[in-house]
Design a protein around this nucleic acid. Structure first.
Lengths: 206, 206, 206, 206
DNA sequence: GATGAATGAGATTTCATTCAT
DNA sequence: TATGAATGAAATCTCATTCAT
C-alpha cells in the first residue's frame, strides 16, 4: 500500500512536471509569435507562463533549446498525424489532399504556432546547429512516398520525387506565410483541395 | 577653370560616397549571410568593409536600416530586370520561364545575397515595420499579370491569378531555400524550365 | 511557524534591498561629487557600491533617475527636519537661525552631498524634466512662512515674502558654494548666526 | 602705397577673423543655453554659426575652451563696465546700486548668456581646471572695495568685507537664477534698488 | 523543485576631434 | 583658411544565465 502510494506520488509529480513544461512551451510560442525569437525575453516568457525566470532553466537548458523543443513537438505531430491519417486511404491524390489538409488545419488552428513555425523555423534551420533536421526529413519522406506511389500506379509523371515533394511543400509554405502576413481570419484548410489540384494538374488548360 | 575643377571635385566626392556605401552594403550582405542579422555585429561589418564603426552610421541610420537597404536594392533589381526582360516576349509560359530563370540566376550567382534575402527577408517582413512591402507587391503584380495574360489567351485555367502567383512564388522560394540548405554548388537556374513546366502542367500524366 | 519564517524571509529581503539601494545612492553621491554628473560613469558607481553594473538598473531605471533620487532624498530631509525643528520656537528670527543652521549643518557634514546638491541640482533643475520641483517649492514655502509671521508680528518690513525668501536662500547658497570651492574645512554652520543677522539687520550702521 | 594696402588687407583679415569668432561664440551661447553644455553638440554650434565643424577648431582648441571663452568675455565686461561706471560716483550705497543694476541689465538683456553664465559657470568652476578664476576674483574685489569704502566712511558695520561681498553676490545670483527658471519676461534690473536696500538695511524694522 | 536578485559580458550608437583635400 | 567625412574610443543599458536561499 505504501509502495503504491509512493508510485502514485511519483506519477503525480511527473504529471505536474509535464504540465509546467507545457505551460512554458505555450508561453514561449505566444511570446515568440508576438516578437520573434530574438526580440523575446526569457523573463517575458516566464511571466506569461506564471513561473520564475530561473524555473525555465530547470526544464530547458537554454533559450535556444526552448525554441528547438517547439519545433520538435510541432514536427512530431505533423509526422505522426500524417502517418495515421494515410492508413485507410489508397488513392495517392487523396493522400496528398489529406496531408495538406492536416498541415493547414494544424497551423491554421493555432496562429501563434504557425508564426513561430513559419517564420522562425526557416530562419533557424540555417543557423541553429542543434536543430533536429531529421524530423523535417521524415515529413518530406512521407510526401515523397506518396509521390512515388502515384508514379508506380502510373498516375504521376516520372519526375524526381524529392523535387515534387519540395514543390508541394513550397506551395503549402507560401500559403501559410501569406495567410499569416495577410492577418485575415479566413479558414486556411479550405485551400487544401484547390492547392493539391493545382499541384497535380497544373494551371494549364488541357 | 576654377569652377569646373570645383564641380569635378564635387562629382568625385559623390562617387566616393557611393562607392563606400556599396562597400558597406556588400560587407553587410556577407556578414548577415554568415551569422544571420541578429548574430551579426556592426563592428564586424565595419571591419569587413574596411571602415570605422562610426562610418556606417554616416551612411545608414541604424543596423536595421542597413538590412532594409539590402532588401530594397535586391527587390529593385528583381522588379526592373523582370520588366525589362519581358518586353520582347509574347508567350506567357515563355515569360514565366524568363522570370523564374532571372530570379534563380540572380540569387544563384550570389549565395550571400540569397541567404540574406531568403532567410532574413521572410523573418523581418513580419517584424520590421519600416520594411518596404511595396516593392515585393510590385514583383507579385508582374507574375500576376503574366498569369492573367495567359488566362485571356485561353492558355490557363480560370484560377485566381493571385493564388497562382503565390503558388509559383512558393515553388521558387522553396527551391532557393533548399539550394541554400543543401549547400551544394549546382546551378540553381537550370531548374527554371522544369519548375515552370511542373507549375503549368502539374505532375499528373494526362 | 512555517508561515512566520516565510514572512521573516520577506522582511529580510526587503531590508537587504533597501540596504543595497542605500549603498548605490551613497556611491553615486561620492562619484558625482568627484567628477560631476556627466563625467561620472555608471560603472564607476557600481564599482564604488560593490555591485555589478547591471544591478544599478534593478534599482534605478537610468543614470538620470539615480541623480533625481539623490535630490529627492536630500530635499525630503530638508523639508521634514526644518518643519520638525521649528515646532517649539516662537521667535521668527530664532526660527530663521534654526533653519539656516540646519541647512548648513546638513550640507556641511556631508561634503559630497553638498557638492552634488549645490552644483548638479542647479544645473539640472533647468534641463531635467522629471526633476521634482515640488519639494524645493515646499522648502521655500517654509522660509516664506516664517517671514510672513515676522511681518505679522511687526518685526519685519512689508517686503514681498517670496522676495525675502529668495534673498535668504541666495545668501545661504552662496555660502555653501563658496565653502565648497574654497575646499577648506571650516565649520560651515558657525556662519548661521551672522548670516541671519546680516539678512535681518543689513550691513548698514543704524 | 603698396605697403599700406597690404596693411589694410591684414586689418581686414583680422576683422573677418574676429567676426567669425564672434559668430561662433554667439552660436555657442545659444546652443549651450538651450541644452546645457554637455548636451550640446559641436556640430550643432557649427550649424548655428554657419561654419563647418572643423572651422570651430581653428578658433578654439576644444569644446571646453569655447565655453571658457564665453565666461572670460562675460566677466571681462562685468569688470570693465563696473569699473567705468563707478568712476563718477562717491556714495558707496549708490555704487552698489550701480554695480547691481549693471549686472542685472547685462544678464537680463541676454537671456541665453544669462543661462550659460548662471547655470554652466557655477557647474564648471568646480570641475574645469583651466577656467580662469582670476576674473571672478577681480569682480569680487570691486564689490569688496566698495564695502570697505563704506566701512571707512562709517556707513557700514565692521563685518568681513569678503563675507559681505559674498552675501551680495549670493542675492544677485539667486535673483537671476530665479528669473531664468520663472521664464517670465519681467525687467530684471528694476529689482536692483530694492535688492541693494535689503542688503544694506536688512528686512527688520528699525 | 522554485525563486528572482545579481551578474557582467557585450552590443549599438554617439560625437569630439582630426586631417586630406 | 575652410571643409566635412572619417575616426574609434567609450558609455549606457540589456538580458541570458546562475545560484544562494
Amino acid at each position: 500500500m505504501n509502495e503504491s502510494s509512493f508510485i502514485i506520488r511519483l506519477v503525480n509529480m511527473k504529471l505536474k512536471k509535464e504540465e509546467k513544461k507545457r505551460k512554458i512551451i505555450n508561453a514561449a510560442i505566444k511570446i515568440f509569435a508576438r516578437n520573434g525569437y530574438f526580440n523575446s525575453r526569457v523573463s517575458e516568457i516566464a511571466k506569461e507562463a506564471g513561473v520564475a525566470d530561473g524555473t525555465i532553466y530547470i526544464y530547458f537548458s537554454s533559450k535556444e533549446e526552448l525554441l528547438s523543443a517547439i519545433f520538435d513537438e510541432a514536427l512530431l505531430v505533423f509526422v505522426e498525424e500524417s502517418r495515421k491519417t494515410l492508413e485507410g486511404i489508397t488513392d495517392p491524390i487523396e493522400k496528398l489532399k489529406k496531408i495538406v489538409c492536416l498541415h493547414l488545419k494544424h497551423l491554421g488552428s493555432n496562429r501563434d504556432l504557425a508564426m513561430v513555425f513559419q517564420i522562425e523555423f526557416r530562419h533557424n534551420i540555417v543557423f541553429m546547429e542543434r536543430l533536429s533536421k531529421t524530423k523535417l526529413a521524415d515529413y518530406f519522406k512521407i510526401i515523397e512516398g506518396v509521390i512515388l506511389e502515384g508514379q508506380e500506379k502510373g498516375l504521376f509523371k516520372e519526375l524526381n520525387p524529392r523535387f515534387c515533394a519540395k514543390v508541394l511543400f513550397g506551395i503549402i509554405d507560401e500559403m501559410v506565410t501569406s495567410w499569416l502576413i495577410a492577418n485575415k481570419n479566413y479558414q486556411l484548410e479550405k485551400d487544401a483541395e484547390i492547392l493539391v489540384n493545382t499541384f497535380v494538374y497544373g494551371i494549364a488548360k488541357k
